[in-house]
Design a protein around this nucleic acid. Structure first.
Ligand SMILES: [Zn+2]
Ligand SMILES: [Zn+2]
Ligand SMILES: [Zn+2]
Ligand SMILES: [Zn+2]
Lengths: 129, 129
DNA sequence: ATGCACCCTGAAGCCACTATAGGGTCAAGC
DNA sequence: GCTTGACCCTATAGTGGCTTCAGGGTGCAT
């Protein structure tokens, strides 16, 4: 597999794959005579794991930790679950913050009666008073 | 007012105030003999406006636009409202994405029965198969 | 004179990529 | 055998919105 194949199979940009390699998330693959990267199934599996973790919102440092943990098949999964619980809490906090924003913006938009800037409730809410 | 006073009054870090100046969001203030920045009420008002806009989730480019619009007191506030509506839509999209994440993480955590890594539902969900 | 809180500049670092410049490789078609 | 075009390579810089750091200077009290 060349890098473009891996890209298509995982929905990851070519540049991102090279970036993951530089960051040590994916082992450097072997090369062809023309200096092209050649990947195998293990690379594909690892990149898929990384992408799914990123899709769940884990940071690259958390992904590194998850990759390490996933190798240790016989250990208890407590650490994995703790990472996931932490991520869930962080997502829930972000949702709450955004919902507060949503309420405030919606309320301002609702109050504005399409007049001039001088009477605009949104500008009024931003300006100090 | 010195920069530290402005910082305390607005809850903005000193470095952030200097950053806003460099970005052209706040006009460069006059200086004392010892080269300290001196701010007045107009600076305080402008920084407050910026911070409230940021708290509502507007980007610095949007803040720039809002500041420009807010000067033009007699114009219709249509452009302001459109920025706010756009921001509301963006917030709502983010909430939906995060709620999907929340459901997925919660479901995985719920399925995991605290065994070994080999049986962990979370690792299983990440690994390709 | 010394300490200490505060201020200054300029540059680099953070995250997770993305983009750009300036090239090289390889198979197909003429 | 030469060109075209899709693909690949490296190295570097840019994104947003700051934060941190290095290496100083200022100003007031003791
Ligand atoms: Zn990094
Ligand atoms: Zn309005
Ligand atoms: Zn588990
Ligand atoms: Zn920037």
């Amino acid at each position: 597999m060349k890098i473009g194949d891996l890209s298509r199979l995982t929905g990851t940009r070519v540049e991102t794959i090279r970036f993951y390699e530089k960051e040590g998330l994916i082992p450097a693959p072997s090369r062809t005579g023309g200096n092209y990267r050649v990947y195998d199934q293990a690379h594909l599996n690892r990149l898929s794991f990384i992408r799914r973790s990123r899709d769940l919102g884990f940071t690259l440092d958390q992904v590194r930790a998850l990759l390490d943990l996933s190798d240790d098949r016989l250990r208890s999964c407590g650490a994995v679950d703790e990472l996931a619980r932490e991520q869930l809490r962080s997502v829930e906090r972000k949702i709450e913050d955004l919902q507060a924003l949503q309420r405030e913006l919606a309320s301002l938009l609702n109050q504005c009666s399409q007049g001039t800037i001088a009477e605009c409730r949104i500008i009024e809410a931003l300006a100090p008073g």
